[in-house]
Simulated assay, not measured.
Amino acid sequence: MNTPANHPASTPAGASASVAGFAAANLSRATGAGLDPHEYLRVTGELADLDHWGEAFMRAARAHLARAERAAGAISAGEHFRTAARWFHVATLGPGPDGALAAAEADAAMGRALDLLEPGARRIEGPNFTGWLRGPAAAPATVVVVPGLDSGKEEFHDLIDALLRRGMAVFAMDGPGQGVRAATTTVRADYHQVIGQVADALGVAEVGLVGLSLGGYYVAESAAREPRVAAAVTVSGPFRLRWDDLPHPVRDLLSRRAGGEAAARRFAGQVDLSALAPRITCPLLVVDGGQDVIPGVTDGESLARLARHGQYVRVPHGDHLLGNARPDWLPAAADWMSAALTKPAPPAPPR
């Protein structure tokens, strides 16, 4: 999941309280996605109704597009396009009909940013995914960043930058029901099929995977079933989902991304790593936040315990996605992935 457990409902009687609660719940996530916190507080502070979230954030994004068009240099223009992509992405988090348009705008703005800032970046698409491959052509390893239920390839810039700084190539993707693909596809539990397509398209013998929120399940499922996964990291990923206990906003969102409530219920029933976790033989790092408690979502401790080479990191003060605790896990996780992909894996312990 990427939607916080205390996602407030939008009601006419409590509109201002709803906006304030939703904005506060998403602050660490928005800043983790690269939004300036002062601008975020200004934009959300002017909102009177949560139903106008998407409109307000797209207006802020378009202001950055205008700055890009006026910029005197390519670097400044590219930075404004990249900032616009982040604002368009966070516009998708609110209710209302703007999600598909905002996701498409985020995708386009990020493409314009990379054209200016990283002309070597490659757009790669397949039947079930869209993404950008960044980093050196001769990188010793490739890491695929997998988003969650309502996230996309434009969100996790700090993580991607940390991996790039360590010399790895990074493929940030939208899969079924995610980002720019959400308008035309629905979520699927057999995500290893998608990762297999990605590995084929990248032309690599092995990949590392980092999955965030529901992407953590996707990564663990793929690590159990796709032999080219050489190392995996999950961040705030679910071990198991219980549909009847999930908060209503999460159920509503999952229903939209699955194509209806019945499909969402079936999908949630498939999100269970009990049988798959022991099949994960590659190095696995599982990161959870101690303050990340969502009804109906079992955290990753069991995943780390059952996997053959699982390691577990719990940051007591971390929230969902640990956006309020990045120094406590992100640099170490990037170092861990770099080492896992460039050093031989330890022998499997006797079973």
Rank of each mutant, 00 (worst) to 15 (best):
A13W: 12
A348G: 14
L41H: 10
V233K: 12
R266I: 11
G318E: 01
V145I: 03
I195S: 12
S222R: 05
P344W: 10
A325S: 10
H52G: 14
G179I: 06
F22I: 00
F57P: 07
V233L: 13
R351L: 15
F57Q: 04
R122T: 07
I195V: 13
H89K: 02
A262D: 11
G131Q: 05
V297H: 01
D51F: 09
R257A: 10
G175F: 11
I160C: 15
S151P: 10
G135C: 04
E79F: 01
R112D: 14
R181W: 08
G126T: 07
G73D: 03
R122M: 15
A345M: 13
R134V: 05
L164Q: 00
N2F: 15
G54A: 02
A25D: 06
A231I: 15
V229H: 15
A20P: 10
G45I: 10
A24R: 01
L116P: 08
D158Q: 14
V233P: 14
W132P: 12
V271P: 03
V235L: 04
T298M: 14
G111R: 00
A205V: 12
T342D: 05
A325H: 06
M58I: 03
L27H: 02
A345C: 12
D161L: 04
R305Q: 08
A106W: 02
L114Y: 08
S76T: 13
G237I: 00
A56W: 00
P147G: 09
L209W: 05
A66I: 02
R257V: 14
L101H: 09
A183S: 06
V297N: 01
V19M: 04
A91P: 01
R251F: 04
R326F: 08
D245K: 11
A103N: 10
S76F: 09
A61G: 14
T185Q: 13
A348P: 12
A48N: 15
F156T: 12
H80D: 00
G32M: 13
A68R: 08
A66W: 02
V187H: 04
S274N: 13
V204P: 11
G237C: 01
C282E: 05
H80F: 09
V313W: 12
L209H: 07
P331E: 02
V43G: 04
G177A: 09
E79Q: 03
G14N: 09
V315E: 02
A77H: 03
A333N: 07
A275M: 09
A102E: 05
A333P: 02
H64C: 00
E226P: 11
G177T: 11
L321K: 02
R251V: 01
D98F: 15
T342N: 11
S10C: 10
H248R: 15
L214P: 03
N2W: 15
E79I: 06
A339C: 14
L273C: 07
A121G: 06
A71W: 00
V143Y: 08
A84Y: 04
K153M: 15
E206L: 13
A113V: 07
T3R: 14
L276T: 02
V43W: 01
R188G: 12
A169R: 15
A182I: 09
E261S: 14
P12R: 03
T186W: 12
A23L: 03
P238Q: 01
